[in-house]
Design a protein around this nucleic acid. Structure first.
Length: 461
RNA sequence: UCCCCUGUAGCUCAGCUGGUAGAGCGGGUGGCUGUUAACCACCAUGUCGGCGGUUCGAGUCCGUCCGGGGGAGCCA
């Protein structure tokens, strides 16, 4: 394989011929030579290639080279007299592999709006910002796996298609092979016995319940996979298809859960700061001023721990007026979370022990019967980035909580079985991967941190 | 789903209280130059999102539909 441009840019000038391949970002002509900026996605920077227009053949080739064209250039790496780069490629030969007619190629040298780039999602990774997002997203994925693998967590592939209609985390996409123009009916409703799975099936909204199954056998596991929500929500923070990370740990209480969540965030953020320095400086300068500082302070700072009850006390005593009133029993609004992280704790805070009414049935009920062992990790600038809990592991209590939530224990038979056979305290949390990428890059819209965003009315490419 | 904003050249936008359209960038042509947001000159840009209405006349006002953005709710 040809050496990548990232490697070439780090090399010293030498006489040995090297080849660079990539896509032309810009072309500039002077009297006798042509300058190309060639980028291959290996890093933010492009390689400056200089070609002497000393023959008719080279001139003809260069006339057809324009922004977006793919080229292969061979020559010597030389010290650059220009101030924007250390080395440059003095090419003896240039091969035009694929033209990009300038009258129709949509990408220009100037800045484009992200809205426009979304319409050309097949070409947008060739821009500085989307390219940088792709590299940071990749580094974060890698860090997620490394973090858990180094701690002996097993990566579990939980199902994409599920027939348990009990996940209750949002609207689901139905999966069916029934003919939609003539659905077989039985007693007034679709006859699912004739559907592919012989019962209603959906795309998963969470892998947590299945992760719990494996945690209660393998001890420590995690999932990292696609998740689907059919909610009709059109915001800069929601996608219909997104990636979620869900660790689940047996013999673990909320304290252990908090420790893992804190070290997890610190690990991933540190990894990006260390390995994506150039891209992060780009985001810091052009996308979100101060993003490096805020990431560093999370990576190095302390995570304050606070119960929901104490948080409400802090907010009630706050010398500011909130748009939404604070009262025990009500969920924290984003303005409240912002105040806690930015004013009270001046850094990340983990809020625990929420009222049972505003949290899910599977969270461990405290002895006070009023609160559950839930935790939300809040960070400055964003608010909630992680939500998790210690799970209810007592069969009787869980059955009671299912009933109280208006659900049918029969639908949860296998989930309850885990509490009948060898139950054990366990805990876990969930993290929306794209939200984390948004936080790290400072990108405003979640649709720009996933290669091919799916949202209401939008699934192009 | 609700509220607000928005849709004009390939892109980013201007177009006041109604009188059939402009700029910058991009593109083309020529010039200059080890250039790097290159520079200078000239040239061409268009169903003003769709449909309907008011009016002598609609980019502009009204209705409606579609697309985009922001906020809320829901959440990750």
């Amino acid at each position: 394989m040809i050496e990548r441009i990232r490697e070439l840019l780090n090399r010293e000038p030498a006489e040995i011929p090297v080849t660079a391949q990539g896509w032309v970002r810009t072309k500039r002509d002077t009297k006798h030579v042509t300058f190309l900026e060639v980028n291959d996605g290996s890093c933010l920077k492009s390689l400056q290639v200089i070609i002497d227009r000393n023959s008719r053949e080279v001139t003809d080739t260069l006339n057809r080279v324009s922004t977006g064209a793919s080229v292969s250039c061979t020559g010597r790496l030389a010290e650059s007299p220009g101030k924007n780069q250390k080395v440059e490629l003095h090419a003896d030969t240039i091969e035009l592999i694929g033209e990009a007619p300038p009258e129709s190629y949509p990408l220009q040298k100037k800045r484009h709006s992200f809205e426009f780039l979304r319409e050309i999602a097949h070409l947008r990774p060739r821009t500085n910002t989307i390219g940088a997002v792709a590299r940071v997203r990749n580094a974060m994925s890698r860090a997620v796996h490394t973090f858990f693998q180094e701690r002996d967590f097993l990566y579990i592939h939980t199902p994409i298609i599920t027939t348990s209609d009990c996940e209750g985390a949002g609207e689901m996409f139905q999966v069916t092979t029934l003919p939609l123009n003539q659905v077989p009916m039985r007693e007034g409703s679709p006859d699912y016995s004739r559907d592919f799975f012989q019962k209603p099936a959906n795309l998963t909204v969470s892998g947590q319940l299945e992760a719990e199954i494996y945690a209660l056998a393998m001890t420590n596991v995690y999932t990292f996979g696609p998740t689907f929500r059919a909610e009709n929500s059109n915001t800069s923070r929601h996608l219909s298809e997104f990636w979620m990370i869900e660790p689940e740990m047996a013999f673990c209480t909320l304290e252990g859960n908090m420790e893992v969540a804190e070290s997890f965030l610190k690990y991933v953020f540190s990894h990006v700061l260390e390995t994506c320095r150039e891209d992060m400086e780009f985001f810091n300068q052009w996308i979100q001023k101060g993003v490096i500082d805020s990431l560093s302070s999370v990576a190095e700072g302390v995570f304050t721990r606070m119960t929901y009850t104490d948080a409400v006390k802090e907010l009630t005593a706050a010398p500011v007026s909130f748009e939404y009133p604070v009262s025990w029993g009500a969920d924290l609004q984003s303005e409240h979370e912002k105040y806690l992280t930015e004013q009270v704790c001046r850094g990340p805070v983990i809020v625990t022990d929420y009222p049972r009414e505003i949290k899910a049935f599977y969270m461990l009920l405290n002895d006070d019967e009023k609160t559950v062992r839930a935790m939300d990790v809040l960070v400055p600038r964003l608010g909630e980035i992680i939500g998790g809990s210690e799970r209810e592991y007592r069969y009787d209590v869980l059955t009671r909580r299912i009933l109280e939530s208006g659900l049918d224990p029969k639908d949860y038979w296998w989930y309850l079985d885990l509490r009948r056979y060898g139950t054990v305290p366990h805990a876990g949390f969930g993290l929306g991967f794209e939200r984390a990428v948004q936080y790290v890059t400072g990108m405003q819209n979640i649709r720009d941190v996933i290669p091919f965003p799916r949202a209401v009315g939008s699934a192009e490419f």
